[in-house]
């Protein structure tokens, strides 16, 4: 799997992502500076977590206008695979590559804790490492992870099976009103979605931080293993 990780000024989880990709795939990803205007030959581009441009405007709003984003749009339109995690998800919604938006957490505080996620669609390359309805643990760390979208978009996402991950209780129950299992208040407890063609995925939690038993578990590994499978050719 040939993966590239985009680094914007203020990105800070690129190292975590690089480690996870390397640990699982055995191959170090390429780091891509945000001013690049051409892309190397890649299977997967990752927009990692962090605070691009300090998140001083809206999260991801400045990065959405970085030179590399033009290339990424092209990559997406040509059928390339893109994963956006946390700030990366925010950038994908700011660029409208994925629908919806990420508002401030309902408690208006930064939240850093573990959450449980349920795989609602195991038919995408990002979720193929799991079975449908599998529940796994992942750390989350964000101030703006409260996913919202208009009624029509939600209907579409739900109807087309584009909810990849939902925040759930440890027993696998999703309840958007429950701050214990859905800490940031996301609509329909949505934690991650995919594009209509299933090739772009955005999610708030950080599976890349849970790929090593030493760090408390390997719950995040199936994401990368599933991608590996998809790109073995």
């Amino acid at each position: 799997m040939k993966a590239g990780i985009v680094v914007f000024p203020g990105t800070n989880r690129e190292r975590d992502m690089a480690i996870a990709l390397r640990v699982v795939s055995g191959r170090a990803p390429k780091m891509l500076w945000h001013r690049e205007t051409s892309l190397p030959d890649l299977d997967l581009i990752v927009l990692p977590g962090g605070f691009s441009y300090g998140d001083y405007l809206r999260c991801g709003a400045m990065a959405a206008h970085s030179p590399i984003m033009r290339e990424i749009r092209k990559f997406v339109s040509e059928g390339g695979y893109v994963l956006g995690v946390c700030n990366g998800f925010q950038i994908l919604t700011e660029t409208k590559i994925l629908p919806g938006a990420l508002l401030k957490n309902t408690e208006l505080r930064f939240l850093s804790q573990d959450c449980f996620l349920r795989v609602d669609n195991a038919e995408t390359p990002f979720t193929a490492g799991w079975q449908k309805n599998d529940v796994f643990r992942a750390p989350l760390a964000h101030g703006d992870g409260n996913y919202v979208a208009d009624e029509k978009t939600l209907e579409q996402l739900e109807g087309e099976g584009r909810i990849a991950f939902r925040y759930v209780s440890s027993a696998g129950i999703a309840c958007s009103e429950d701050r214990k299992s859905n800490p940031n208040g996301s609509v329909n407890a949505i934690a991650g979605i995919v594009s209509a063609d299933g090739r772009v995925c955005g999610m708030m939690p950080h599976p890349e931080d849970l790929v090593d038993p030493l760090m408390g578990g390997e719950d995040g590994r199936p994401l990368f293993e599933g991608l590996m499978e998809a790109f073995i050719r």
């Binding site: 930064f110 850093s112 760090m215």
Partner: peptide
């Protein structure tokens, strides 16, 4: 102190063995 810690990102860097 979870209310305090949970406002601090304790895992960024991917090297936090014990939070």
């Amino acid at each position: 102190r979870a209310w305090v810690w949970n406002q601090y990102d304790s895992t960024v860097g991917g090297q936090t063995v014990r939070r």
